[in-house]
Design a protein around this nucleic acid. Sequence first.
DNA 1: TCATTTTGCTAAATTGGTTTAGCTTTTTTT
DNA 2: AAAAAAAGCTAAACCAATTTAGCAAAATGA
Lengths: 339, 339
Amino acid sequence: MKKTSLNDIANKLGVSKSLVSLVLNGKAKQNRIGDEISEKVLKLAKELNYQPNQIARSLRLGRSETIALIVADISNPFFARMGRAVEDEADKFGFKVIFSSSDENPDKLGELLNVLIDRQVDGFIISPTIKSKEYILKLKKNNIPFVLIDRCLPPIKTNSVVVDNYNSTYYAVKFMLEKGYKKTGFITVSSGLSNMKERLLGYKDAMKNFGVRGYGSYIREVDYKNFNESVGEAVKELLLTQNNLRALFFATLRVGMAAIKSINDLKLRIPQDVAVISFDDADAYQIFYPPITAIAQPIDMMSSEAVKILINEIKQKNVKTEKTQIVLPTEFIIRESCC
Amino acid sequence: MKKTSLNDIANKLGVSKSLVSLVLNGKAKQNRIGDEISEKVLKLAKELNYQPNQIARSLRLGRSETIALIVADISNPFFARMGRAVEDEADKFGFKVIFSSSDENPDKLGELLNVLIDRQVDGFIISPTIKSKEYILKLKKNNIPFVLIDRCLPPIKTNSVVVDNYNSTYYAVKFMLEKGYKKTGFITVSSGLSNMKERLLGYKDAMKNFGVRGYGSYIREVDYKNFNESVGEAVKELLLTQNNLRALFFATLRVGMAAIKSINDLKLRIPQDVAVISFDDADAYQIFYPPITAIAQPIDMMSSEAVKILINEIKQKNVKTEKTQIVLPTEFIIRESCC
DNA sequence: TCATTTTGCTAAATTGGTTTAGCTTTTTTT
DNA sequence: AAAAAAAGCTAAACCAATTTAGCAAAATGA
């Protein structure tokens, strides 16, 4: 059973496919198509359940009404939620979303961009990896619409939607300090990404301003490879060796999940033995006992803003648009893991 | 900066674009294209960084090398992991993936299928919702390749990849009973889906065979709307009222997450006050204290099998292929939540 | 009545590839 | 030397839409 095409309708009514196309695109009036024939076309199209072939449309129009979301790993709950929110917002504009995971690998990111551009995606929402500057600049130079999300590449002026990483961290750490946890450790990933830098800076400034000395040794930057083991090592070092810390701040959800697991393995109790706060929130943190205090990013809003900016730029592709930078506040959710 | 097209290459070399196309598709030999000109084409294509426009290709070939994955909700960790695994396996074949969430709504599923068919996706991997039989049958009738995953629609013969829900549940419940938890409650979602039916049956048979009577009142089926609250209610009822149960089996990850949260809220301890086992595994279950005993589905294998079956069918679209039904075993991971 | 405008529609180009049939020219066969 | 075969390449159709220029007929104007 072949799908109905413009030609099928045209032939059945004995008119040209131009006419059918014009009518179905609502351009009957401005092209002086008669009311009578217009109605016939509309009626038959409905009867035959005509749906235009989007591939043919894309080829002719040079756009596909598809955007691509490139994140580190779509199975990470943070990005999964982002994926869902992007999907929903894009749907409002009739856009579909292709998801791709870069695995924090800049070359994979570059390859994905190439492949997806050949597939005529209209634009990208990207959570950039380290060392991806080159590829992002190429997009910019070629005037391909894109929005960076979660992380940005500061010197380069691009559309971006991020949260206030510095202040979010600053205030959370300050909260910890005021609770009496002067020795608060900080575990982060060694990525050099903007968001991670800002979070680290927020921590450092909070410690500095509170007059804590020697906090440099409370910081652990963990590499992506052997991630869980490395986080475990960091936790063990901070809690069991020289520093004798009693509080930890986790710079991301992934760090937090791995760290909490190793705290459990060490048979230490939260918050009695060690108080914790994590950047990012997740279901797991809510059901945990005790529930984990978290800095929740407004994922839905970040995603919908990113989609709006992107689609706006796509719709005025030729027009030179100003780049939009959005910084959203986070929500500090105090739960029992730190009191 | 426009992209290089076949024509650009053809014009620069003063040959036809047919020739260029044949050479670049490796069909030079069989079409008796001279070696000399072949090499020139290859060289120039590389120089100009030629990448074929996939939309044009798709239009001509009637395929897009894109598949769609339709699940209930891509932000659910179970489906997010599936999404990632599907993405990776599809990538091996040069296919891209469009993700869509049906929200367990059959009409949304139907609409998605329509839209995605118009976009010429080559096939679908679908976790079907309730009442989606009509739409699935339509796919089948129109000879559109698809594979059902996680859930199937038994009377209809389709490709499917599921796990052995009945036995997995049977043995987990039996394990619980043998540990002495005769009164084991069962909380599931009232979906009528194959997987849920089988899990319930596994529970019932285990209880029956163990000689437990009156287990009908230990069962709670929860509706999708007001999900978390309803699960909370079910937990409260089972644990605090007539039955006085001391063990619970959760039929899905979502049920488990919501239930554990309300167990925490009730200030009950796992496993001292209530032992729990959940179908599905997740990071959250591993980091939980105590870690939750779980029936882990082989998500990676399910996903890669589904992709393989699908792409195989896509590649021989006209050939009438036998439908493949795969049932995979689960892994029963005993942790401390039930001992 | 003839020129002009308006109305209603269509042919054809375009998008960028793939593929088939067939046209020259050269080489081989008889 | 004529016929047959092979080599090397191209024109054109095709995929299914969108869009522009323009034709023919009807309506209007002078």
